[in-house]
Nucleic acid binder design. Structure first.
Lengths: 242, 242
DNA sequence: CCTTTAATAGTCAGTGCGACTATAAAGGGG
DNA sequence: CCCCTTTATAGTCGCACTGACTATTAAAGG
């Protein structure tokens, strides 16, 4: 399949290495994921996760952040949460050749409308619920990413990564409810978040009138803590696998 | 650096892909990790994590299990817990060439003495506390693996993977204490484990006299559950990072 | 037979959380 | 202008889980 090219003495084969990104955001109360429409075979016309080949001088993290900037059109992606998921390496996952892909999950507060990246492919935010079927094994990658993000909400302060710099506790609660697909009790959620030191910090004297109706909510910023001890466990659904 | 070999049209460079394994076991009440002594440059004479190049027809998981069998000398590694950690891809992590490495963590009940694998490298169980410094970025990989295993003990039933098919609750508790480096209250640990459905299953009428002294302990097998709800949190140490 | 050792059983108080009720502060419609 | 709706915030109650501790049981060793 591959022609050896001078590295036979190391008894190894060369592989193409790519990064694939599952970029999540919240739009209008629903979890959305960034997808691109493939312009060429294989899977031409199908939707896929954004990604690309690793360049010789960059790490997978660097490549993922570069792709993230290209596909979202954001000028500064340095502060965004980017997390390595796992690596997919099944033979045959790309019909062209042997490709090993390092998958990442990224979280955006609220995202600008995505116009195709530098590679002219059309990029679009798609509701997570209606995403797929995708090209290659990207359905699996996307599902793994969603699982990981949901799990990390439980024991980290990651939820603030979905929020604007200043946010209300109601918006923070919506992050949990949207990603988990469950409803949470508002007073209990408040109590838990405020009782966790460093999760959020109040913005003194500031309040937002979200839609107009109702009492204006106090504004908070993300705190300095990263872990949640004890965790904020999602409601135990019967029969949920590990 | 690399000669292109016919895939220029895909605008990508070829990489060597390896797997690295952090194989843990418990020996004499201490956490041990499997290391190999490198026979050739770079880092000749240094200790390193076992691993090797990915073959063209195998996934990283397959390669990791193959390497695990080779390095431990075990005939059947199909039932052992093997978990993908993350992928290390910094340029320059291998001075020879551009190598992307998929790291795995593996857990063994009690391990046979390791004699060098097929590649004639000397393999040895080393106490985790005295392991390192290692070749390449293997210190970092090993630390990451240890963190991951410690975290997974909290919210999964993974601890049984360190135990023989039949074990006492005292032995199971030793797994937690050894990996976490803390002491746990024995009655409370018992209560928690037995109150979690599917964590362990009693072996009727069986008891073991571990060292001889003391009341013989009842034997248990691993249960069918994989997750721990609610989790078994390790004692909160002040200032522990995320 | 008594001491030592280790497993097992049980107690008790504090903490955290689910479920729930009550109050406060805004807008909208009559 | 009053009242109703909406949303944020405050507080209550009981249960479940956990940490700390004491007591009992079953073995080995002198």
């Amino acid at each position: 399949m591959f022609a050896m090219n001078g590295y036979d003495k190391y008894a190894h084969e060369p592989f193409a290495v790519t990064v694939d990104l599952a970029v999540f955001t919240l739009r209008e109360g629903a979890l959305h994921v960034l997808l691109v429409e493939r312009g060429q075979e294989p899977y031409a016309g199908h939707w896929a996760l954004p990604g690309g080949f690793l360049q010789p001088d960059e790490s997978a993290e660097t490549a993922a952040r570069r792709e993230l900037a290209e596909e979202t059109g954001l000028s500064d992606v340095s502060g965004l949460h980017l997390e390595q998921l796992r690596t997919y390496s099944e033979p045959g996952r790309d019909p062209r050749m042997r490709v090993v892909s390092v998958a990442f999950a990224a979280l955006l507060p609220d995202a600008p409308e995505a116009h195709g990246g530098s590679d002219a492919a059309q990029a679009r935010w798609v509701p997570y619920a209606t995403a797929g079927p995708l090209a290659f094994d990207h359905d699996r990658i996307l599902a793994d990413a969603h699982d990981r993000v949901g799990a990390k909400l439980e024991y980290t302060c990651l939820a603030t990564a979905f929020c604007a710099p200043e946010f209300t506790l109601g918006e923070l609660q919506q992050v949990y409810e949207t990603v988990w697909g469950t409803e949470l009790d508002r007073p209990n959620f408040r109590r838990k978040v405020l009782a966790t030191p460093g999760f959020v910090a109040p913005v003194p004297g500031a309040a937002r009138l979200t839609g107009g109706r109702g009492k204006p909510a106090a504004l908070y910023r993300a705190g300095t803590a990263t872990a949640l001890h004890p965790p904020l466990l999602r409601p135990a659904r019967e029969g949920r696998p590990a």
